[in-house]
Nucleic acid binder design. Structure first.
Lengths: 211, 211
DNA sequence: CAGACAATACCGCGATGATGTGACACCGGA
DNA sequence: TCCGGTGTCACATCATCGCGGTATTGTCTG
């Protein structure tokens, strides 16, 4: 039986083109298409689609909120974002929300059919620039230029223990040194990181991947 | 002028097939191919490839270490991993190390040419299952089953400020409430998260993406 | 309307952390 | 050989935090 597809897209022309394009293949059955996400939960429940195509910029509830709603009760339906946004915020928010793919509208005519096939096969179709954004995000700093605070090994070790939630006492016990020694190390760490408290240090350590 | 390609692959048959496959196109110039990474730095320096195809499992230095070496001095050359491993560890290690693409060997004959083109156009070619692994990794917990601590909005807000390195005083000032109120909220947060200190709370909050 | 819950606020005390100052031993490079 | 960096330890003081209570207010809901 054909793959059931549900479309959210507020632009009427594009919405109808998508329906036409997909129906033409014979492989896909567009069970419905809507210009907004207001009733997304009911609709997904009622229509049991295999794949949802979701625009981001829609009146009322945007597509990312729509994805969150769907994921609130359904982890299985495949969701492909279909949008003009290629900035970090939108891409990552959509992915965090639970989208399975992210296709820029300029590639729709070329890649949509292929992407639907890919997402159904357990893939994660993404426009090339999106894929690159995601992997660059993983690669990030890792102690590059700006965030080299010249911590010694011992200091890094202590910062690590601190970041895992250990108190000074626990660190002292763990490393078999005195509480005052821990204090001294911590003081030096604060100096080097330019912070004034545990939390600032831990927050900085985690965010800048020092640990 | 043709794209310059450098290949690392310890299996002689596969290595020669790759060279043949690429040379056939006329579009690509395989500047060299080696069965191991021992001299990867010198070789990349000397041969100035546009694209490196890198196997992971090789004698001596493995492909992931090879990528790290290259990235130590060259951020521009495009590196595609070419391997049979599709487990989390290898994929993420390779990506963290600085690879631009990750192609499973079973797809090589079909997708290699296309992947090289894609990586040169600023994309990040990945086998479907790899792409899915990477995006599932981003989606993770996000307040699922186990880590739902029933924090109220206010509590979440305070935990967020705490995680950014604010002291109780600063939080009170920020939210225009009294220091004692902050204390009260913090107490409840500790109860709910089953922790006993700022750092534990912050560490838990960040690791479980509660903020 | 009663009861639950969230947010606010205050008190008090012991524990822990922040900060300064000083000191000593060890090691490796100038 | 002397010096700087590192790791170790101690003492002191004040600020902040952890935790036990208790209480008031407003909102939502059965």
């Amino acid at each position: 039986m054909p793959v059931r597809i549900l479309i959210y897209e507020d632009n009427t022309n594009l919405r109808e083109s998508l329906v036409g394009l997909l129906e033409l293949t014979g492989e896909y059955n567009v069970v419905a298409s809507f210009p907004d996400c207001q009733k997304v939960s009911e609709q997904v429940h009622a229509l049991t689609p295999d794949v949802v195509l979701m625009d981001i910029d829609m009146p009322g509830i945007n597509g990312i909120e729509g994805v969150k709603k769907i994921r609130g009760f359904n982890k299985d339906v495949q969701i492909i974002m279909l949008t003009v946004f290629d900035d970090n915020t939108h891409v990552f928010d959509a992915m965090y929300a639970g989208a399975n793919g992210y296709l820029l509208k300029k590639y729709v005519s070329d890649k949509l059919i292929h992407s639907i096939r890919e997402v159904l096969n357990g893939g994660a179709p993404m426009s090339p620039s999106i894929a690159r954004m995601i992997i660059s995000n993983m690669q990030q700093p890792a102690r590059e230029a700006g965030n080299d605070y010249q911590l010694t090994n011992r200091e890094r070790e202590i910062l690590q223990l601190l970041s895992k939630g250990n108190s000074f006492k626990m660190i002292a016990a763990e490393l078999l040194i005195s509480l005052d020694t821990v204090r001294t190390h911590i003081k030096r760490i604060y100096d080097k990181l330019h912070v004034r408290s545990q939390i600032e240090a831990v927050s900085k350590a985690i965010n800048e991947k020092l640990v």
